[in-house]
Design a protein around this nucleic acid. Structure first.
Lengths: 198, 198
DNA sequence: CGCGTGATTGAAACCCTTCAAGTTTAGTGG
DNA sequence: CCACTAAACTTGAAGGGTTTCAATCACGCG
């Protein structure tokens, strides 16, 4: 059952199968029903989650009670509150399953141990961090520069597969607009003969 | 002249003075006049910049020609396009001196070499990355959740010292609003007897 | 079948932008 | 040190994009 995570890591990080096997004690796998909260705001995030199947999201709730989606994580993605894990701070957000999902839990110890025994894993982990920064930067750029429509087009070009799986109001939340606005954006695009893959 | 960078690194990263001395070949220092561009959009960012004195900023220019400030870097800060350095991609933005500045240039080789000879430097570097992620996440949260006024108040609580040194239109650009809007926000705050340190 | 959640649509309100003046500030050369 | 100019900041009025609120429609699930 860890096979998917194993082949993922072996392929991406260059860690060997044997090395991975030695890390098994740091892992646990769970099947999580749809709508389950894996991380509560205010709690310290002790684990990161690798999604073997299903779909998760991270979101915050602001002072006026509105949700803001921070990240989606379909199969093959990792989702966590890095800052909370790394700095041992209470988390600012929630992590929840959007679909029933098979999830691998791994702690910071896993990463430390893996970095210890495999320098290529250490490099891989840094690549992950750098990539995360790149992605956050991209999102900031779009929030500063782009209209709702442009942000939506960007979203579907990056995550075309999520269009069908994520409720529209969550996408709106990710884009920083209301569901009503997204609906109007889509209507406008349809009028101009735009057709996302569906 | 490298003393400030040396004591900064020794104190923060736990690298020893001797180790730092051995890294000197990877460093160069320059005095840069105000308004000089250190990194051009489209160029590959080969160096990071430690600010010994003065003030720099990173900014992008969008398709309609508008500037968007990504980061300010006063003395004691590091400014760079991490993604460009790490992935060898053309940079999306510019880095420019707002004031005449004394700047230390260091390449990725410096970081690799320092990580090689000092595990505490390696840890420090990861802390830097994690911290960067935390800060970007915070900014996204504010762009999604907060009004112009809230973003401004957040800005001056985090960077009170920059208020006096950075032209207002650049702060507006950082906040994602027009200079006119920021002016009105400030007027509104003044009317409500709000007084930033000045 | 009916209920609840999500999506759509309309109208009014709101925040912020745009454009177009003015005013202030800062820097430069005489 | 003043005069001049350019840049930065302010202010007003009009406009645009997005939100809010409310009502309606569509659909999946018990």
């Amino acid at each position: 059952m860890y096979l998917s995570f194993q082949s993922y890591l072996v392929e991406r990080s260059g860690i060997s199968v044997l090395e991975f096997q030695s890390l098994l004690p740091y892992l646990k796998e769970k099947e999580i029903p749809k709508g389950t909260i894996l991380l509560q705001k205010g709690a310290i995030c002790t684990h990161s989650f690798f999604v073997e199947s299903g779909l998760l999201r991270a979101y915050s709730i602001d002072s006026s009670g509105k949700e803001h989606v921070i990240q989606f994580a379909p199969e093959g993605w990792i989702i966590t509150d890095r800052s909370s894990v790394f700095f041992n701070h209470p988390s600012d957000y929630f992590i929840e399953t959007i679909e029933t999902s098979k999830v691998i839990y791994f702690s910071h110890d896993f990463i430390n141990q893996a970095s210890e025994i495999s320098s290529s894993f250490r490099n891989y982990n840094e690549r992950l961090l750098q990539n995360h920064i790149r992605q956050l930067q991209h999102r900031i750029q779009y929030l500063l520069e782009a209209t709702a429509e442009e942000r939506y087009l960007d979203f579907i070009s990056i995550y075309p597969d999520l269009l069908l799986r994520v409720p529209q109001w969550m996408i709106a939340s990710y884009l920083g607009i209301t569901p009503e606005s997204l609906s109007r954006v889509r209507k406008e695009l349809a009028k101009r003969n735009f057709n996302p893959k569906r």
